[in-house]
Design a protein around this nucleic acid. Structure first.
Length: 432
RNA sequence: GUGGGCGUAGCUCAGCUGGUUAGAGCGACAGGUUGUGGCCCUGUAGGUCGCGGGUUCGAAUCCCGUCGCUCACCCCA
């Protein structure tokens, strides 16, 4: 067991080889897909004024009320580690003036929520997100959803499902809340303790309460869109038609509501059946956020990188080979003089772009060969005092076991030739 | 914040109802080949049994506390 001091904080993990290969893969694929949709990357600070999140996410939400890392900085400002990405990105875009109001951007990076860790839920977790600004338009919503589906497909995921719903327009929301409260108040005896509190603070959340008793009450309610205007219903119908036309399958989920206050109209979640309790790998929606007296409209989504990677592993698609970034050449040195000479040679080879390994300390030849074998290198260069005298090295092919004496003057050339041939042959299916 | 499960070697774990020097496999390291890997054989290193307290002649084992991990609630990506 490691001493406590050497362990990271609860819910915060080191990411390292070999799992890090999955992370790099996901990031690389995401950048590629975003390029196809004309999105630019934006990187915003991890630390922001606490009120930025309180105002945009909503100060009655759980995320803000009990999960945010809030503290005072040295200047006496109330600051918070970002619990999600949208607020910071919108702050940035709003500050860019009118052009910012039509930007399409993506971001990726760590977010922080002080919850009790469990499978698929860390205190520091990582999201990849997208924000497409501009006035409400069903076709933009459809494009955003398509983007997200293509992204997940590009990662190699197959078994995910899309749940879709609408919260109605900004004008509908107050009426929706009021109607729900009226309907639910008469049945509040059958609601759980939390939901009775939510009647006042956040009625909508009652809809997706997990308590069976509350679910029963919710099932008695009429469909939500009965409380919405004709425009809102038309808006959602146009979106559904667009998705059908494009060929994106989804499931209408009338009780889907989502936890942040800024959503309106289209909202959705993407879940993966292999994931257990935390099965939402991604979620998004259309929003309107007021920042500094200006209101910003757009649509966006965020996906949880650790959940996506977990899903990839569950599907068995993520079998990334550790060998893809291993050394191509390994240098074995017998004696200190040889070690120095080999370090010089390794420098030449590395300058030419080769992946070189080797220990420049005189262990036994046997131990060094064992290490060479384990490294997976295709070629091994062996040099001892005899080779130094003759001005040669021994070049060994680890597959065939053949050894040749190669003059020092030709070794770089020879290795480059051999490795290139093998590389062209061998890496067809890998991502080197 | 609430509840369940689990903390024994670098890793995966064994250790029966408390009994004397705490084990195995894998891995690491070394030797078997005075300078050659993947197989085989031999050996070596490595453990405050998470930590603290209690019960007992005696605790890895039982009890309490604590810390950590983990799963679930809650919430969300």
């Amino acid at each position: 067991m490691k001493p406590e001091k050497l362990q990271p904080l609860p819910g915060m993990n080191d990411l390292q080889f070999p799992e890090i290969l999955h992370w790099q893969h996901v990031e690389e694929v995401a950048r590629n897909v975003f390029g196809r949709f004309g999105l630019r990357e934006v990187r915003t600070p991890l630390l922001e004024r606490a009120e930025l999140f309180e105002r945009s996410i909503g100060d009655t939400t759980d995320v803000v009320q009990k999960e945010m890392y809030v503290f005072e900085d040295r200047g006496g400002r109330r600051v918070a580690l970002r619990p999600e990405g949208t607020a910071g990105v919108l702050r940035n875009l709003a500050g860019r003036g009118p052009e910012g109001r039509a930007e399409r951007v993506y971001y990726m990076g760590p977010m922080f929520r002080s919850e009790r860790p469990q499978a698929g839920r860390r205190r520091q977790f990582h999201q990849i997100g997208v924000e497409i600004l501009g006035p409400a338009e069903p076709l933009v919503d459809a494009e955003c959803i398509v983007l997200q589906v293509l992204l997940l497909e590009a990662f190699g995921l197959k078994k995910f499902g899309l749940r879709l719903n609408t919260r109605g327009s900004e004008k509908d929301l107050p009426r929706l809340r009021r109607s729900l409260r009226d309907l639910l108040e008469s049945r509040q005896a059958r609601l759980c303790e939390d939901c009775r509190r939510r009647l006042q603070s956040n009625v909508l959340r009652i809809l997706d309460c997990k308590q069976e008793t509350c679910q029963a009450v919710v099932r008695e309610l009429p469909p939500l869109d009965e409380f919405m205007s004709q425009e809102s219903r038309d808006y959602f119908n146009r979106l559904e038609r667009a998705l059908d036309e494009i060929g994106i399958s989804y499931e209408r989920e009338p009780r889907l509501i989502r936890g942040l206050d800024y959503y309106l109209h289209t909202i959705w979640e993407i879940f993966h059946p292999a994931l257990g309790a935390q099965d939402a790998i991604s979620g998004g929606g259309r929003y309107r956020v007021d920042l500094g007296g200006e209101s910003i409209e757009g649509i966006g989504f965020a996906l949880g990188m650790e959940r996506v990677i977990e899903a990839l592993q569950a599907e068995g698609a993520g079998a990334l080979s550790a060998a893809t970034d291993g050394p191509q050449v390994w240098l074995v040195s017998i004696g200190r003089d040889a070690a120095l000479a080999n370090l010089a040679l390794a420098t030449d080879l590395r300058r030419k772009g080769l992946h070189c390994g080797g220990e420049f300390q005189s262990r036994s030849a046997k131990a060094q060969m064992r290490a060479a074998g384990r490294s997976g290198a295709e070629l091994v260069i062996v040099r001892g005092s005899a080779e130094i005298e003759r001005g040669t090295v021994v070049l060994k092919d680890m597959k065939t076991g053949n050894e040749d004496a190669v003059p020092l003057t030709e070794i770089v050339e020879t290795v480059l030739g051999r490795v290139n041939r093998e590389a062209g042959h061998d890496t067809a299916g890998t991502s080197r």
